Amino acid sequence: MQNFVDGFRSSVASAAPEEGRQAGDNLLGTLARYPSLAMAFLTFNKHLLSGSALTVRQRELLVLRVAHIRRCDYEWAQHVVLAERAGLTADEISRVTAGPDAPEWTPVERALVASVDELLTDGAIADDTWKVLADDFDEQKMMDVVFTVGCYSMLAMSLRSFGIQPEEGLIPFLPTPR
């Protein structure tokens, strides 16, 4: 199992090197208690982190919105680090919490943020939102939107249910109390 986890870390890091990224030891240590599940999940998650048709910026908007809605501090903190490395400003990261109605979003960014809300509330992207995304995204990107939201929603539920605490290096990136 340790070789698999090490391979996951190195393949994701080599696809998108991120100096200073937190290793996620608390999460990976918990997953390692169930090796067959961990290997299946990490294989899928590796696609979302390094093989997705979405840009890193697009992915991070989705994940941050999921973390906010699911109230998952660990996921929020980890992905604030990744969002900053993808070029999102502090204002844009903060704006994720305001949702799709924040006036500063581009039409596609607004649709991405709205897609999270719709998927988590209704289980489907609304027709109007789908049309905005489909005007710019091909079929694979559209699929990656749905699977990214689904995966990170499931991960948020897991992190919270298992009581996984953020590593010390993530503490400065935790959300402010609601």
Rank of each mutant, 00 (worst) to 15 (best):
Q2R: 15
V5G: 00
D6E: 14
S10A: 10
S10W: 10
S10D: 09
S11R: 15
A16S: 13
E18W: 05
E18P: 01
E19D: 12
G20M: 09
G20I: 14
G20Q: 10
R21W: 09
R21Y: 10
G24V: 12
G24D: 09
L27R: 10
L28K: 05
G29Q: 04
G29D: 05
T30Y: 11
L31I: 02
R33K: 15
Y34A: 12
S36F: 08
A38C: 11
F41V: 05
L42Y: 08
L42D: 10
T43W: 09
F44C: 07
N45V: 08
L49M: 14
S52F: 09
A53T: 11
R57M: 12
Q58H: 11
Q58W: 03
R59N: 01
R59A: 01
L62W: 00
R65C: 01
A67C: 04
H68C: 12
I69N: 09
R70E: 15
C72M: 02
D73T: 07
Y74S: 05
Y74D: 05
A77G: 06
A77F: 05
Q78Y: 13
A86H: 06
L88M: 11
A90W: 08
E92G: 13
S94K: 13
R95C: 12
R95M: 14
V96Q: 02
P100L: 00
P100N: 06
E104T: 07
E109K: 12
E109L: 12
R110P: 06
R110H: 14
A114F: 07
A114N: 12
V116G: 05
V116Q: 09
D117I: 02
E118L: 00
T121H: 07
A124I: 01
A124N: 02
T129P: 00
A134I: 03
A134Y: 04
D135I: 04
D135K: 10
D136I: 02
F137A: 03
F137N: 02
F137S: 03
M143V: 08
V145K: 09
V146N: 01
V149G: 00
G150I: 10
C151D: 08
Y152W: 03
S153F: 04
S153Y: 08
M154R: 06
A156P: 10
A156E: 07
A156M: 03
S161W: 03
I164F: 04
L170G: 07
I171H: 15
P172L: 10
L174A: 04
P175H: 04
P177V: 15
